[in-house]
Design a protein around this nucleic acid. Structure first.
Lengths: 151, 151
DNA sequence: AAACAAAATGTTATAATATTACATTTTATA
DNA sequence: TATAAAATGTAATATTATAACATTTTGTTT
């Protein structure tokens, strides 16, 4: 995400927090910015390392608390299979997403596929199961890496 | 899983290993049995604890190596969202599954839903993505717990 | 503005999950 | 039976995450 997009996103996040009467504090904003600026998903401890430049002596809870807040408000996603965090591509509306995670380059593609969601929902119904948090992560190789691997 | 089912499963696992020319050693078998006997998914360290009864001084690598083997051969599954392992319900054929994980009682329901798989496959195709390992885990409340919660 | 409660942060310690590295033993097979 | 490959033993350590309690900041009431 470039600088302009980042500012736009943070602005949106601030508006959203104002609306929800919650606070996007400096630390939370800083963690959000780090995640959004990163090329790849960041782990909590990668964020912690980078945080040292703007916060003195940050400790794990500093990061995990900020992450918890950002997750709660749908501003970031946690990728369970790789223990890492990425910015949400559509923070404006509530949604569930699926993630295509490339094992080669580490890039992640967040998609919102209605057919997948529908099929998941049908299966839930059939089982009488009520999902609170879907984890849909496809680990594999992205199209770019497939090309470069075959050369 | 009851004792009879367990013996049946282990027998099947042994046949499968013979066929693949790999070895279901005592330790691997013991770890498999522990996972199959458990009511709920087990974490690596829960397995380690239980292993103390049959193995002297087991260390983490003992467990993780056995788990790696069992995963490779499709005898167990890892639930990424809860860092735990369960037996595979259909070790006989290669397949992908989806998991309904109850946050209340901890029970897990492994399903093989063709509609979900089809929709995932379509999305992969559309993105030019080649999935090697799908992680499809729905965290929520099972039907039983929904009932008991509402009482 | 002062008092208070709630929210957020600071700080230390530790729990839980997982891997590395190297030594030794066991197994398959040449 | 010698050898190589596979499996296991063992110690240390890396990585991910949380608990517990003190302090500070913020928002609200008086």
């Amino acid at each position: 995400m470039n600088k302009k997009q980042l500012l736009e996103f943070v602005h949106q996040a601030e508006a959203l927090c104002k609306q929800r009467k919650c606070r996007l504090t400096d630390q939370r904003k800083r963690v959000l910015e780090l995640i959004l600026s990163a090329e790849k998903p960041l782990t909590a401890y990668e964020i912690l390392d980078q945080l040292r430049e703007s916060v003195k002596n940050p400790a794990p809870p500093t990061v995990y608390r900020a992450l918890e807040f950002l997750l709660q408000h749908g501003l970031i996603h946690k990728l369970e299979s790789i223990h890492a965090f990425i910015g949400c591509t559509h923070p404006d509306h509530k949604h569930t997403s699926q993630f295509l995670i490339c094992n080669d380059c580490g890039d992640v593609n967040e998609i919102e596929n209605k057919a997948i969601e529908k099929s998941l929902h049908s299966a839930e119904q059939a089982a009488g199961f009520k999902t609170s948090h879907p984890v849909i992560e496809l680990l594999g190789t992205c199209s770019q890496c497939q090309l470069s691997n075959s050369h």
